[in-house]
Design a protein around this nucleic acid. Structure first.
Lengths: 354, 354
DNA sequence: CTGTTAGCGCATTCAC
DNA sequence: GTGAATGCGCTAACAG
C-alpha cells in the first residue's frame, strides 16, 4: 500500500484513492466507499470527515476500478459512417442526450465508410467493456454483406448487446430500430401525385445499399400502383453527397424526356440537384419539383426550402437507448421497432404547371 | 477463481479471461498475457495453442483491467457545445481520426451550451480516467467567466492534461491551440477594401463571447487603420444560428444608411443574412457583399457561394492531438500554438457597384 | 523462456 | 455501523 507505481508506467501522477482518504480520516477504505456510494449508513463524525477530505483533495473515484468490479462500464459505443453529416450528427446528439439521462457515456466511432475500421472499432469497444453498442450505417446497410462482415457482427453480438438503427443483417439476430422510410417514400409520392405530377424520377443513393434499394423498390411499386410513369433512366444513383446530386441531376438534364418531379435519396442530393437544375435554367419548383429525405436543417434553409421526410429523431434516439439499456438489463425487448416518419412540406415542389 | 460473480452484478454474462485460456492451454496466465501483448517471447508449442484458444473463444482482453494496472486508459475526452454544428462535427471528425492513429478512443461530450453539464462531463471524464481532454467552446470562450467556471477548470487540470481549442481562460494555465481568426478578419477586410467597399458592417455572434469580442475588436481596429467607415449600428449580434443571421440582416435592412458589405461571424449567420437580404430584394453580391467564417460545406454550396475563412481543420486537429499526447507523455509543449487561416473566395462578395 | 505472485482502485461480503 | 479480507482481469517483477 505504500510502495506504489512501477517503473515504466509512471505516466500519470498517482492520484489520491479511497485508501488515502481512509487513512487521513481514520476509517477503513470500506467506510469511504460507503459514503461514496451511499450503499450503507455511516455515522456522523466519520461521514463528515470523509466528505471534507473528498472535497479537500478534489477526489474523484476511479470508475475503471468500479467498473472492473461491478462488471458494467456505463459506457455505450456508437459506430457510424461519418459524424460530419447532419443526419448522423443529429442522431448522435439525441442519442447522447438520452444516454446521459440514464447515466451512460458515449464512445464515438467514425468508421469513415471503411469496413476494416468498423470492425476494429467493434472489437475495440468490446475490449473497452462498453455495456452496449448502437450501430448505424456501414455494413448493416449492405443489401448483400460479405460473410466476413456478417461473422464479425455475430462475434460481437456474443459479447455485448447491439442495437441496429435503420439497418439489418440477414442471419444476424440483432435488435433493430428503424424509421418507416417506405411510408415516407409513399407519402412523398402521394403529395407529388396530388400535385398532378405524372412523371417522376429518383436520384441519389447507391445500388447495393439497403436504404437505397428499399426506397427504389417502394418507389417502383408505388408508382405502378398509382399508374404513374417512370423510366429506368430517371433513376440515377451516384451517391449521397451534394456532388452526387449535381451529377444525377445533370444526367436528367441531358435527357430528351424529363420527369416533372424527382425524389432525392437525401437532402444533400436534393440540394445538389436543385443547384444543378437552376444552373441550367430549370426553376425549382416551377419547372421541376424536388423532394429530399432526412429533414435536416439544410432542407429547411436551402432555398426554396425542401420538402423532406423527417425521421422523428428524438423518438428514434429515445427508443434506441431504451431498447439498448433494456437489453443490457437482460430484459426482453421488441425485436424490431418501427418509428413513424412524417413529411415536412416546403416550397421545392408544387402543382405541376402545364 | 472458480466461484465467480456476485449476486447483484450479474448484469453481464461473465466472459472468458486469460485464466480460462491459460488453464486450457496448460500454461500460466502470464504466458497468455505475453502472447497477447508481445511483451516477451513464448515458445512455439504453447504460443500456437494460446493463439488458437483466443481465436476459438473470440477472446478480447479487458482493457479496463489493463488500464487499471497500466494507469493509462488510452481514452481522450472531447467536450464541445454541440456536435450538430458543421464546425464542431468537422473538428471532431478530424480529432478522432488523429486520435485513432495514435491508438486513442474518443469520449464525446456535448455540453449543449450548459455550464453545469460541461462541468459534469469534466468530472465524469476524470473519473473515467481519460488520459487527456480536448475542450472546445463553452466556458473557454467566455470573455468574463465566473469564478466557479474558472475553478472548475483549474480543478480538472490538476487531474489531467487539457488542451483548449480556440479559447482560453485567464488565470488558467492550460495549453492552447488556436486558429488565427484575427488575421482571417483582416484578410476578409483586405478583400472587401480592394473591392472598393468603404462601408462595412459586422453581423452575428454574442457579446461576451471571446471569439465574437475579438473579431469585433480586430474589425474596429482594421477599419480604422484602413480609413474605412463603420457605424455602431452596423454591428449587430444576435447569435450564431441561421435565424440570428436573418435577424441581424433584418436590422440592417431597416436602416436608412446601409453598408455595402457585411462580415458575418460564421457561415450560418452569413446564410441567414443572405436569405434575408434576398427576401427584401437586395441581391448578393450585387447590392451587398457578404462574407462568412469557418468555411464549412455550407459556404461552398449555399448560393451564391460564400467567401469564408478556413480554419485549416486538419492541421488544427493534428496539432491538438499531438500536443495533448505530448502532454500525456509528460513532454514539454508549446503553451500556445497558432494555426494559420486562409480565405476561400467565392461569389458572395464582389467589386462595389456604383 | 516460464510460472508464481502481487497489486492497480474499488465494492462487497462477512464477522464483529 | 464498521473493519478486514477478497477478487474484478490484467501486467510486470521476480525467481527459477
Amino acid at each position: 500500500m505504500i510502495e506504489r507505481g512501477r517503473r515504466q508506467r509512471m505516466l500519470k501522477k498517482d492520484g489520491v484513492t479511497i485508501y488515502h482518504i481512509a487513512k487521513e480520516a481514520n476509517v477503513s477504505p470500506a467506510t469511504v466507499s460507503r459514503v461514496l456510494t451511499g450503499s450503507a449508513n455511516v455515522r456522523e463524525p466519520a461521514k463528515s470527515r470523509v466528505l471534507e477530505l473528498i472535497n479537500k483533495y478534489n477526489f474523484k473515484p476511479n470508475v475503471m476500478a468500479q467498473s472492473l468490479y461491478l462488471k458494467q462500464s456505463k459506457m455505450i459505443g456508437i459506430i457510424l459512417p461519418d459524424i460530419d453529416h447532419p443526419f448522423y450528427s443529429m442522431i448522435v446528439k439525441m442519442l447522447e442526450r438520452q444516454a446521459l439521462d440514464k447515466g451512460y457515456t458515449c464512445l464515438l466511432c467514425n468508421s469513415m465508410q471503411n469496413f476494416s475500421i468498423e470492425q476494429a472499432y467493434l472489437d475495440s469497444l468490446i475490449s473497452r467493456q462498453v455495456d452496449g453498442i448502437v450501430f448505424l450505417g456501414g455494413r448493416i446497410n449492405q443489401t448483400h454483406p460479405t460473410e466476413e462482415l456478417r461473422t464479425g457482427m455475430i462475434g460481437a453480438l456474443e459479447h455485448v448487446p447491439i442495437v441496429l438503427v435503420n439497418g439489418k443483417m440477414d442471419g444476424v439476430d440483432a435488435h433493430t430500430i428503424r424509421t418507416d422510410e417506405a411510408s415516407g417514400v409513399r407519402r412523398l409520392l402521394d403529395i407529388l401525385d396530388r400535385q398532378g405530377h405524372q412523371t417522376i424520377g429518383l436520384l441519389g443513393g447507391e445500388i447495393g445499399v439497403s436504404s437505397t434499394d428499399e426506397k427504389i423498390d417502394v418507389f417502383r411499386e408505388t408508382m405502378k400502383e398509382k399508374g404513374l410513369t417512370f423510366k429506368e433512366e430517371w433513376i440515377h444513383n451516384s451517391g449521397y453527397s451534394i456532388e452526387a446530386g449535381e451529377e444525377d441531376a445533370m444526367h436528367l438534364i441531358h435527357l430528351d424526356d424529363r420527369p416533372t418531379a424527382v425524389l432525392c435519396i437525401n437532402d444533400f442530393v436534393a440540394i445538389g440537384a436543385i443547384k444543378m437544375f437552376q444552373k441550367f435554367g430549370l426553376k425549382v419548383p416551377t419547372d421541376i419539383s424536388v423532394t429530399g429525405f432526412d429533414d435536416t436543417y439544410l432542407a429547411e434553409h436551402f432555398p426554396p426550402g425542401v420538402t423532406s421526410v423527417n425521421h422523428n429523431y428524438q423518438k428514434l434516439a429515445k427508443k434506441t437507448i431504451e431498447t439498448l439499456i433494456g437489453l443490457i438489463a437482460q430484459e426482453e425487448q421488441e425485436k424490431e421497432t418501427v418509428i413513424p416518419t412524417y413529411v415536412t412540406v416546403r416550397n421545392s415542389c408544387e402543382e405541376r404547371q402545364r
